[in-house]
Design a protein around this nucleic acid. Structure first.
Lengths: 298, 298
DNA sequence: CTGAAAGCGCTTACAG
DNA sequence: CTGAAAGCGCTTACAG
């Protein structure tokens, strides 16, 4: 912008440019809840990369997985001049939004389960959670635990790489595969799952679908008088910034959500404009962070 | 939309409409970090209200409080056809963005300190944190503590209603006002502040600027062998969903950020169109939630 | 009350 | 290489 233009306070109209040129440097990201750590960190990463590339970012939250609500949201973002969309498809609402996207709009997804059909219908990005879950499970087994229990969040995507990795590690070790315990997205549901697990004296190690669930389980163990990690080990997933400060500090799998968000935008960039040199994914590999909540069985 | 139109897959172009009519149903919200609970919950509330009103919401993150970076962001959102902006001015970056907004664009803010000049230059919305902080302080005093220490997050906005409420309650009780201890936005900084406090045997009660700081303080106390709440009480601010599950469960001030976000959008709505009936603020009044981390001094 | 025309602020293909 | 014209898809004021 020249000094003269700046002085006059001239600002180009994005709307006019979009209309005239037929394209907009805009992504809108569809997400179920901006309040949870994972999605909010992915959003942070997307925004960072988008801003660097001169893109605007819009946001649409999928309050409810109810088909009509999802369809309404999809309708809003399918405006022909509205630009591309990224959907964070870690749960039912996101998966349904992905399925409902009309052809003709550029869409890219961040998914949880790499084997889900969603990741084949659209360009997608994910972390290698299966390997990480298997590693966490193996770690517990090697500590001497006879098996490892798993607290899942059901009806999210149907399949989960985390659960598959856990199951696979158990199978490879030739160890009994207990039924997964049903948790949920709330802390309370993690607590309830923990209560059930605490009541079973045979349980000595539990892997949790995320750190919120793990925090609930931790509290349930304490309430039941089962010492962590002396009597039972608990391991989470995500490594939220608070995890290192819990009591006990949580052993968990660190997931680079911000990096995943950046990769997601880079992928979208490549879809929109094949001439833009595609960068290799930069998200860090998931890594088990051993802290205080895990140890050998008594 | 008629069935015929739907069948043909017709979707109106938002860009064309914006150009022709001169207005866009769009808000973009400027925020420093989508990853923190407060801002992300406010965003959730804004998006919910905006969607209900048929508005699109954009997001711009203020990575850095550095003036050039802030100016660049402000420039992007000041597009004449881009619509209104909401800035979450809880920290330096937000406050600076607010100050840099050119006249002519509709802006509304969510602020922390009701007395700051920012809240007078623009329509703003805030929670009554001063009264809540005073109440939390009084609660600790009435438990029998001789005074209450405060862990602040410095250089955020300059003034903080939370700190003012604490100071006021102490003054009204005719009690010594200790120097605030400097914390920060990271958990680690809360931990460091807690270490300093733990080393001072005279400290029996500490009020923390937010729950993250409080979690850090909790851990520091544990590391120093000071029992909570038996030897020292710690109280937070925010009531993040995890607070009830910490060990010990955190006594904290519940802040209705989602409601604040809704109110913020309602205020903006009124600014954009004075004919729209303005609804009374609906955010819940801050409330002290007493849990396990506070009690009488020994 | 209905319908054709002008215009919103840009970009772009084309004439000069 | 430069400059004037057409057109992007809507809205709106105006003629009929």
């Amino acid at each position: 912008m020249s000094a003269a233009i700046r002085e006059l306070g001239f600002r180009p109209s994005r709307a006019a440019r979009a209309l005239a040129s037929g394209r907009t440097a805009t992504v809108t990201v569809l997400v179920a809840n901006t309040t949870l750590y994972g999605p909010s960190a992915i959003l942070q990463g997307i925004e960072e990369a988008a801003r660097a590339a001169g893109f605007s970012v819009g946001i649409g939250v999928l309050d409810s997985p109810e088909p009509d609500a999802v369809a309404a949201m999809v309708e809003r973002v399918s405006d022909p001049t509205a630009g591309a969309v990224i959907v964070i498809a870690f749960d039912l609402a996101g998966v349904r939004a992905l399925r409902a996207m009309p052809s003709g709009v550029a869409v890219v997804a961040a998914v949880e389960a790499s084997d889900a059909t969603e990741s084949h219908r659209y360009p997608a990005v994910w972390l290698d959670e299966r390997v990480a879950a298997a590693a966490a499970t193996r770690y517990l087994l090697e500590l001497g635990h006879e098996t490892v229990h798993y607290v899942a969040i059901p009806s999210s995507t149907g399949t989960s790489d985390r659960m598959r990795g856990w199951r696979q590690a158990l199978a490879e070790a030739g160890v009994a595969v207990p039924d997964p315990v049903a948790g949920g997205w709330t802390l309370r549901s993690g607590y309830e799952a923990g209560r059930a697990l605490a009541a079973d004296a045979a349980v000595t190690a539990v892997l949790c679908r995320n750190d919120d669930v793990a925090l609930g389980v931790l509290r349930a163990m304490r309430a039941a008088g089962r010492a962590v990690p002396d009597e039972v080990s608990v391991v989470g997933f995500d490594d939220v910034p608070q995890a290192a400060f819990y009591a006990p500090a949580l052993t968990t799998v660190r997931l680079d959500f911000v990096g995943l968000g950046r990769d997601c935008f880079a992928l979208l960039r490549g879809v929109l404009d094949p001439l833009v040199p595609g960068r290799a994914p930069a998200a860090a590999t998931p890594e088990l962070i051993v802290r205080e909540s895990s140890g050998p069985p008594r």
